[in-house]
Write a protein that binds this DNA or RNA. Structure first.
Length: 190
DNA sequence: AATTAGATCAACCGCGGGGCA
DNA sequence: ATGCCCCGCGGTTGATCTAAT
């Protein structure tokens, strides 16, 4: 038998949150704090699973979230951290105050990953598996693949180092220039 | 003006880690 | 030592917006 579902899905809302649901969640977290996501929906009067509530709060409703464009400085830091940590978005987000891992991940996937051409496989797979968009997909795939291949030619000059994952307890940025543009990451291993 | 392609981002899914009984 | 359960994470999807044709 498979793993039990994280929540009872029958009768629960899915998809986009409305203002009323947001208000209920904000009100509940303000008075009770974060955590206990499993019981939160029932106690807050929300027809959502706890997972969905947690995600909504963490990625959208938290008061300390900085929304809007990622600055060139942040982008640069993301690139540098990604070259060291790989797709460890939560760790990377930890170095960018008030940014969420989801936001960084999205930014990487839509902007930065193009620089290394890794999207060829991902996008092609997506186009092939998307049942809704099967019409005219062949043309789309051909066009997209050619574009990415072109980009990849230029990207070959950029070397991306993907180290073997190592469990760490913490890490910090150590500046070696006054404007913080040069520095290194110091790891504390377990 | 209508259609198509591309970009963006909120949200969902499944998995694995870790706490606890 | 073992199994269950919750939480957090990364990968992926799909709706919507914008730009190009």
């Amino acid at each position: 038998m498979g793993r039990a579902p994280c929540c009872e899905k029958v009768g629960l809302h899915r998809g986009s949150w409305d203002a009323k649901e947001d208000a209920l969640l904000i009100q509940y977290v303000r008075s009770h704090g974060e955590g206990n996501w499993k019981d939160l929906p029932k106690q807050a009067g929300l027809l959502r699973c706890g997972k969905s509530c947690r995600l909504r709060w963490m990625n959208y409703l938290r008061p300390d979230i900085k929304r809007g464009n990622i600055t060139p400085e942040e982008e640069d830091l993301i690139i540098r951290l990604h070259s060291l940590l790989g797709n460890r978005w939560s760790l990377i987000a930890g170095r960018l105050p008030n940014r969420t891992d989801n936001e960084i991940k999205n930014h990487w996937n839509s902007h930065l990953s193009k620089k290394i051409g890794s999207k060829v496989k991902t996008m092609s797979t997506r186009l092939f598996t998307s049942s809704k968009k099967n019409n005219n997909n062949n043309k789309k795939i051909q066009k997209y693949t050619k574009k990415i291949e072109n980009e990849h030619e230029h990207a070959k000059e950029t070397k991306i180092h993907s180290p073997k994952p190592v469990r760490i307890s913490s890490f910090r940025w150590e500046e070696s220039s006054p404007d913080q543009s040069i520095g290194r990451i110091v790891f504390q291993t377990l």
